[in-house]
Amino acid sequence: MLNIFKRLFRSGTSPDFTELLKNDGIIIDVRTTGEYASGHIKGSQNIPLNVLPANLSKLKDKGQPIITCCASGMRSATAKNILKNQGYTNVHNGGGWRNLYYKIS
C-alpha cells in the first residue's frame, strides 16, 4: 500500500528543496487559513486548496520553483497537479509542512 502512495505523490527522487528555495523558489501552503495560523513555515504563502484556482494570478512566473505543502501531502499533491495543468513547469510536492520544515532547516 505504501508503494502505491509513493507512486501517486512522488516521481523519482525527491528534489533538493533547499536548493529550489535558493533559486527564488516559493512555498505555497494549501491548508486552510486556520490550519496555517496554528503553525507554518516562515515565509510561506497561504493559498488554501479550495481557492487556489482563483488565485493563480498571485503566481505570475510559471517557471519559478514552487513547493506545495499541507498537513500530510494529499492536498499538496492535488495543488501540484492543478498548477501543472495550468502551465506551471517547476512544481514540487513538499508533502506535510512539518516534514518540509525539517528538510529545509
Score class of each variant (00 low, 15 high):
1 M>I: 11
3 N>S: 08
6 K>Y: 13
8 L>G: 08
9 F>T: 09
9 F>N: 11
13 T>I: 11
15 P>E: 06
16 D>R: 15
17 F>A: 01
21 L>I: 05
21 L>F: 03
23 N>M: 02
24 D>N: 08
31 R>D: 00
31 R>W: 06
33 T>C: 12
36 Y>G: 00
37 A>K: 00
37 A>C: 07
37 A>W: 00
38 S>A: 10
40 H>G: 03
40 H>M: 08
41 I>A: 04
42 K>W: 07
42 K>Q: 13
45 Q>Y: 15
45 Q>N: 14
47 I>R: 00
47 I>Q: 01
48 P>I: 12
49 L>T: 07
50 N>D: 14
51 V>L: 10
56 L>K: 12
56 L>S: 01
57 S>I: 15
62 K>I: 15
62 K>V: 12
65 P>T: 05
67 I>E: 07
68 T>C: 06
71 A>V: 13
72 S>I: 06
72 S>V: 14
73 G>V: 10
74 M>A: 15
81 N>P: 01
82 I>V: 01
85 N>P: 04
85 N>A: 14
88 Y>I: 03
88 Y>V: 00
91 V>E: 07
95 G>H: 02
95 G>W: 09
96 G>Q: 02
96 G>C: 01
98 R>C: 02
99 N>T: 08
99 N>D: 07
100 L>E: 01
100 L>K: 03
103 K>Y: 10
103 K>P: 03
